[in-house]
Amino acid sequence: MAKRIDVSGLTAYYGSHKAIDDISMTVEPRSVTAFIGPSGCGKSTFLRTLNRMHEVTPGGRVEGKVLLDDEDLYGAGVDPVSVRREVGMVFQRPNPFPTMSIFDNVAAGLRLNGNYRKSELNDIVEKSLRGANLWNEVKDRLNKPGSGLSGGQQQRLCIARAIAVEPDVLLMDEPCSALDPISTLAIEDLIGELKERFTIVIVTHNMQQAARVSDRTAFFNLAAVGQPGKLVEIDDTERIFSNPSVQATEDYISGRFG
């Protein structure tokens, strides 16, 4: 459970376009790391390289190393499918499977992978829904379609679906940007609970959110439109928001540009 991520010299491309350039960082286990930065700076692209979802995009390719507890995700013979079982992901817009019920949505990861015991399934679904703070709201309608839930509930359903396969790392790509403040608060509380068990990386445009939920914060920036995004600095969240070591970070956080 909860593994460390070591990234060194990571460069990602879309076809011939370089999206992020030479990024190195360490993500500690059982902590929340937030990525902030202006739109198009490569935060999401970098996040997607951490579970090899980047290469799902046509033309997407990666150079460099991503070590998950000493094992290189991009090493020879590594199956991206097994990488994604260890590194789960929650997306910007809630995307429950429309053909499946709430129960089936949570069970989807296990069922589609085929490695579960029938007797365990009910327990795992309940545990995951409780873990996502959704159990009390949906326990009476587990057989109803997941798309009938509200946006905030759907996003928590997606989190339950992601943690049901017990990944080591949970990546979240702006999980609250489509939600209202109350649902956002519910998800932020949930992130606080989940970091006891998982390594969490979250991309956010909301600086207060980064300050509230994360232990460490990474600031990304790009020199100009069309240039690749770069990591400016990564440090303890408190330091980034009070006394960052790079001027650009302070400018961005205080709203002077970007």
Binding site: R84, F91, P98, V165
Partner: peptide, 27 residues
């Protein structure tokens, strides 16, 4: 079929052929 559904399934560690069979086709 929205790409987000395919990505959601792939991100759960489901192989592509199973994603097509169990998520894309039923939708």
């Amino acid at each position: 079929v929205p790409n987000e559904l395919r990505e959601a399934s792939l991100a759960l560690g489901v192989p592509k052929w199973r994603t097509i069979l169990k998520v894309v086709l039923p939708t």
